[in-house]
């Protein structure tokens, strides 16, 4: 019953995060597109019940890293172990089994436009469980209620606002009660209030269900609000350049790349102090 104990521990939030068991192991991941190397030996662990932020400027390979973690792409070298199983080598049933443990919130929601919200959420439940329709309906309503959406089961995604789409997509990602939730830029395209509400929701999910959450983002406010730990990638070295608590990275890291990122300093405008945060091209 090792699994039960671990989950119970995560759910009750008892042990410090660093001492909890590791649920995702990323080992020496190398990603190449043709001649270009995007990631060159990335290694880190994700602990059970942790909220980990993957940071970095545009083009540093954080979305690419996410694609390796969720099995959409296979790295040129290295492995990604999800709950002990290697997703980079898994095929067929084995891969399906790993994928059942994870939920993914895509940047633009990626809700299926031709299906209603309820159909979007129930799709995996219908496919992978033998639950009767009445229970599936109850689960769909529950998930929608969890993300703060009621009475939109029969709406099409095109009828929802941006924030509602994100929430509905989150409900879909949670449909199978995943142990790990991957979020790609969850706050992109949301107003500050919706963005803060989404942050709260992720924290509550983490606390009440013990869901491990991996967030790829460059939204500083969101990182500070939710992440227990952050890793930062950089495109010049193609590796992790910093790792730690967001507050520590902001205050005590000496690497100028990390400093500039957390303090929103433009590479070219540091002394001019004009339009901080605008990315140099």
């Amino acid at each position: 019953m090792a699994e039960t104990t671990e989950i119970a521990t995560a759910q009750t939030d008892a042990a410090p995060i660093a001492e909890r068991p590791v649920i995702v192991q990323v080992r020496d991941v190398v990603v190449r597109y043709g001649e270009a190397t995007i990631l060159d030996g990335v290694t880190f662990d994700i602990h059970q019940g942790e909220i980990l932020a993957i940071l970095g400027g545009s083009g540093c390979g954080k979305s690419t890293l996410l694609r390796q973690l969720i099995g959409l792409e296979r790295p040129a070298a290295g492995n990604v172990l999800i709950d002990g199983d290697d997703i980079t080598a898994a095929e067929g049933k084995e891969q399906e089994k790993i994928l059942r443990k994870i939920g993914i919130l895509f940047q633009n929601g990626a809700l299926f436009g031709s299906m209603t919200v309820a159909e979007n959420i129930s799709l995996r439940l219908l496919e992978y469980s033998d639950l009767p329709p009445a229970i599936i309906d109850a689960i769909v309503r529950m998930k929608l209620s969890m993300v703060g959406l009621d009475d939109i089961e029969y709406d099409l995604p095109s009828e929802l606002s941006g924030g509602m789409k994100k929430r509905a997509a989150l409900a879909r990602a949670l449909a199978m009660d995943p142990r790990i939730l991957f979020c790609d830029e969850p706050s992109s395209g949301l107003d500050p209030i919706s963005s803060a509400e989404l942050d709260n929701l992720l924290i509550q999910l983490n606390r009440s269900l013990g869901v491990t959450i991996v967030v790829v983002t460059h939204d500083l406010a969101s990182i500070a609000a939710i992440a227990h730990r952050a890793i930062m990638l950089d495109k010049s070295v193609k590796k992790i350049i910093a790792e730690g608590k967001p507050a520590d990275l902001k205050e005590h890291n000496d690497n100028p790349l990390v400093k500039n990122f957390f303090n929103r300093v433009a590479e070219s405008g540091e002394n001019l102090n004009i339009r901080p945060g605008k990315e140099k091209r």
Binding site: A138, I139, M142, L209
Partner: peptide, 13 residues
């Protein structure tokens, strides 16, 4: 020991 949201939905039903 552990209760997920699907079972909570069942309880509500």
């Amino acid at each position: 020991e552990y209760l997920d949201s699907a079972v909570m939905a069942v309880v509500f039903d």
